[in-house]
Write a protein that binds this DNA or RNA. Structure first.
Lengths: 198, 198
DNA sequence: AGTGCATACGGAGGCAGCATCCGCTTTGAT
DNA sequence: ATCAAAGCGGATGCTGCCTCCGTATGCACT
């Protein structure tokens, strides 16, 4: 299945192999050293030349997007689960948390993510995920607002920004989990409708 | 005045001249290109060698701290004004805003600032300002809490983090002033005591 | 199996920025 | 005018980015 049009020749075997190996190494390096890790080092450790890396992934963002693919799919799955929740308020809370975790996958991820949100050039492979996330946030927020659980003055983009912020702070490593928890609570009590006590 | 002990020789004239010129150029470059600007370029444009720059300011952080000196003094002055305000709630609001503006002086400033807050090594010249700001935030928050204007569960450090976050987002340039305003409002309604309506 | 060709590889190399070191100049004191 | 200390600045080595092109590799066809 899958191949819509593999006109002519069958793709070479080493291409897939190298691509997979590069993704593997890149993920490790992103995890250990953040998104700013040396691409040259990734290539070397994979056992390929820099040229091969750059042919497969022309920019750092492209490599990043490819490495994030798995996590993106997880997030989409989680979104579907969350959408089925009855409690709109709880759904919104969980969705914000899911986004935050996604943004915290690698240290320094929020920067290129926000850069992608800034420049509306569609050649940035991180732009598409972003748009999608903002749209989903809007959906969950609207549902919560309809249920009277969230202030009308808040916009989905605001909560997206809040989630990115918390992820950014988390990535700086300057803050313990306790402070992060209080920050999340602060944001939550910021967007909640006041009569929404439980 | 000033010179407590200028034992032996009078300091050379070119030292002060170069230092001032470097600060001037550096401020311009930080403003235009953010805190990551090329130090080599700063030196070249000032008309001195790289060695001279690094002798005066051993690290990027040292240069940054020196350039921020003026703004730090302004912030201290503003803090004194704010401390004189009768309304503790308004004082807290203004102080948070003042911090945020300080952090937004140059694009990318929040990163090294948080890094300074993380590593407790005192050789980082940005650490001291940070500590001071957090302490002041605590003072303003405590006053607001005593007046019943802020939730007891909030800590000064949380609001410090919130201010840094907004500055960071602002620095990414991905967000218009309107969204930033809503984000500030969200934070404010997050730390305010609910019965504090006006 | 052997041949030919498209495709992909990889490393050399140019570029930019960081940070250091050391021979030489400038400066203030005598 | 002279001297020594203090400061200067550029040459230098290093790391990382990214490109280009000669070469090796794997697929298809015989």
């Amino acid at each position: 299945m899958s191949a819509g049009e593999q006109r002519g020749r069958k793709p070479r075997a080493d291409v897939q192999r190298n691509r997979a190996a590069l993704l593997e190494t890149a993920q490790r390096h992103f995890l250990q050293h953040g998104v700013g890790t040396s691409l040259e080092a990734v290539a070397k450790e994979t056992g390929v030349g820099p040229g091969t890396l750059y042919r497969h992934f022309p920019t750092r963002e492209a490599l990043l997007a490819a490495v994030l693919q798995t996590r993106s799919e997880e997030l989409v799955a989680r979104r579907a689960e969350i959408a089925r929740l009855g409690d709109a308020s709880e759904a919104l809370r969980q969705w914000l948390r899911a986004m935050e975790e996604y943004f915290s996958a690698f240290s320094g991820l929020p920067e290129p993510l926000m850069a992608a949100a800034r420049e509306r050039e569609p050649d940035n492979p991180l732009t598409l995920p972003c748009d999608d996330l903002i749209a989903t946030t809007d959906e969950r927020l609207l549902a919560a607002q309809r249920a009277g659980h969230a202030r009308q003055s808040v916009k989905g983009y605001d909560l997206f920004l809040a989630a990115v912020s918390v992820a950014w702070i988390s990535g700086t490593g300057a803050t313990d989990e306790e402070s992060l928890g209080r920050l999340r609570a602060l944001i939550e009590s910021g967007y909640r409708e006041q009569d929404d006590e439980e």
